[in-house]
């Protein structure tokens, strides 16, 4: 860890913003934001719906193109890369999603092998490596199952195997456990923690669930209205903003005295 602390950041964003043009006019999904994440960190982006956390995450692999700013991830400036180099760089940045986003016409093996197929890995090798990745997530017996035949937790494991098969430096998680029941969520989160401990994978987790952030993350950005309001160290959380305090209360359990983030009781 000490060696890594001096290394270049896993993610470095400077003055990054995102403005969407809608029928109703421009919407600032993300106001100009700076953010640095060190290799091996697990960082949470916490906020309510529409706070801009998913937009911020999707900027980290250029699923969204920033309106302004520079996005450096895994040692390259994504905003200055051409299309082919950007695609290669994306293999170093895995991503998983709330609704898993698996290919319905491919088996578990086919879904994981997809990430290797687009990288030009030969059929035999990609089947072997995909099988290995499915073993890592505990699905060695579901290799030939289609997503429709799998439970939500199993589907997310397939998606994780797909994200990890290229051995990424960074894993982006967009509400990855929001559609799962609590015990499945916990087992997925444990897996992410283990992944971080064993491989040193940098993990960024978008969630509106403070329990997720509390259990997995080392620090959290509290987001609201397209901006990071404050950073919270999860080992010693002392939120200053009403929103941060509300989240902390939520982690401890709501009471009749819990104050809502807008100040109302």
């Amino acid at each position: 860890m000490t060696a890594r602390a001096n290394a270049a950041p896993a993610i470095d964003m400077r003055n990054v913003s995102k403005r969407f043009q809608t029928e109703a006019g421009p919407v600032d999904a993300l106001r100009p934001t700076d953010l640095t994440i060190a290799p091996g960190e697990i960082v949470g982006l916490l906020g309510f719906s529409g706070a801009g956390k998913s937009t911020l995450l999707r900027l980290m692999n250029m699923l969204e193109t920033p309106t302004t700013g520079v996005v450096q991830v895994a040692g390259a400036d994504l905003t200055s890369l051409g299309e082919a180099p950007l695609r290669r760089q994306r293999r170093k940045i895995g991503m998983i999603f709330q609704l898993f986003n698996l290919l319905s016409h491919e088996t578990a093996l086919g879904n994981v092998a997809f990430a290797l197929r687009v990288a030009g890995v030969g059929r035999r090798e990609r089947r072997e490596r995909a099988r290995e990745a499915l073993k890592v997530v505990g699905l060695e017996d579901k290799v030939d199952a289609y997503p429709a035949q799998l439970s939500g937790g199993q589907r997310q494991r397939v998606a994780i195997a797909r994200a990890l098969v290229n051995e990424p430096d960074v894993l982006l998680c967009d509400e990855a456990t929001s559609a799962l029941d609590p015990h499945t969520s916990l087992s997925i989160l444990r897996f992410l923690k283990r992944l971080n401990a064993e491989r040193g994978t940098t993990i960024v987790i978008v969630t509106h669930d403070i329990k997720v952030a509390d259990y997995v993350c080392q620090r959290c950005a509290i987001m609201q209205d397209g901006a990071i309001r404050e950073w919270i160290d999860m080992s010693d959380p002392r939120p200053a903003s009403p929103l941060g305090q509300f989240f902390l209360e939520t982690a401890k359990g709501w009471t009749d005295e819990t104050v809502l983030p807008d100040g109302s009781a």
Binding site: R58, M95, N101, H105, E106, V118, R162
Partner: peptide, 23 residues
């Protein structure tokens, strides 16, 4: 979302059409 997943896996547009959209 399935297209997003393919993009984030590093797929090109041609690959997305051939391996994701059409099938």
């Amino acid at each position: 979302g399935v297209v997003d997943a393919a993009i984030s896996a590093g797929a090109s547009y041609a690959q997305i059409v051939r391996l994701v959209l059409l099938p």
